[in-house]
């Protein structure tokens, strides 16, 4: 059990922009040690929620408690325990990476030696680029520098708003690994907002899905996924025979033909070995079994509902 005490408590958060309601009573909790996934399609209200937690946006109503204290009356105290990247990691382009970190360290209320700043730059893989101007950095390098910046005050909570947006596949993997490192090596609590579902599925232990400013579902990632019926793809040498055999069994609820050599079965985790055995007993060669129940399917199902 990772959860110990609540780090973030968001209660009935509402935000109106004129007549447009961006958030309708969003509530969730984040516990110490969580990697908390914040999922939703574009325009769902993820950034609005993150920005409200960081006091960049004033809520119309609702409350936010961070580290057990109300944000509005303890802003500076609670923000001193938070590190964040909000959307793009933007820095002063005319300053070096090192100078940028010095500037943000100074107003984070910490005094860091050059050695410490260089250590952070090394940690995010930018060794040797300390004195280069940020203007010459790629998006991926800025994202890494952004993560170094979040660690300046050794925060308890890190908020990452779409940290992999605009990165190439290698950049996405690198940032994902860095996030996992933050959790495992530095014991940070992380709120990760993303519309990249695989990212959340791979690294988050708890999550919330919001759509059109409303909470769709929230809870433990594994529990939420396990509550859903599994879709399994069986690749076989005789699809027609396999379909016939399985239609007489009780292991699969629905049987669809995906391609000429594969079947899609709506079933449960426990039924997979039984189905495999049944097919083999009927001299049907099974060459591949692939579970298709992914967060993406779950997400799309919830959003479309």
């Amino acid at each position: 059990m990772l959860a110990q005490h609540k780090i973030v408590e968001v209660n009935n958060l509402v935000k109106h922009y004129g007549t447009f309601c961006a958030l309708h009573s969003v509530s969730f909790d984040v516990y110490a040690g969580d990697i908390f996934g914040f999922l939703g399609p574009n325009g769902a209200g993820k950034s609005t929620t993150i920005r409200t937690i960081l006091s960049l946006i004033q809520p119309t109503s609702g409350s936010i408690n961070l580290f057990g204290k109300p944000l509005h009356s303890n802003r500076n105290e609670v923000l001193s325990k938070i590190g964040c990247i909000v959307e793009k990691p933007d820095f002063y382009k005319y300053l070096s990476a090192e100078k940028n970190l010095e500037i943000f360290a100074r107003i984070s209320g910490v005094t860091l030696s050059k050695t410490k700043i260089h250590e952070l730059i090394d940690f995010v893989g930018l060794k040797g680029r300390e004195r280069d101007k940020v203007a010459g950095f790629s998006h991926g390098m800025k994202q890494r520098l952004g993560i170094a910046q979040t660690l300046l005050n050794d925060p308890e909570l890190i908020l990452l708003d779409e940290p992999t947006t605009g990165l190439d596949p290698q950049g996405i993997i690198d940032i994902r690994n860095l996030i996992v490192q933050l959790k495992t090596e530095r014991n940070k609590t992380i709120i990760l907002s993303s519309h990249i579902l695989s990212e959340i599925e791979l690294i988050a232990n708890r999550m919330i899905i919001i759509n059109k400013g409303k909470t769709v579902v929230q809870g433990n990632v594994a529990d939420l996924l396990n509550s859903q019926e599994l879709v399994v793809m069986f690749t076989v040498n005789d699809v027609a025979l396999a379909k016939q055999v399985l239609s007489t069994s009780s292991f699969a609820n629905t049987i669809d033909t995906d391609t000429q050599s594969s079947l899609l079965l709506h079933t449960s985790n426990e039924s997979i070995p039984h189905i495999n055995k049944l097919l083999c007993d009927n001299n049907i060669q099974v060459t591949a079994i692939e579970t298709k129940r992914k967060l993406e399917d779950y997400f799309l199902k919830l959003i479309s509902a």
Partner: peptide, 14 residues
């Protein structure tokens, strides 16, 4: 314009 205001205003300073 540069986007740095987002970072600046999330720091523990009024």
């Amino acid at each position: 314009d540069m986007g740095t205001i987002r970072l600046l205003l999330t720091k523990p300073i009024s």
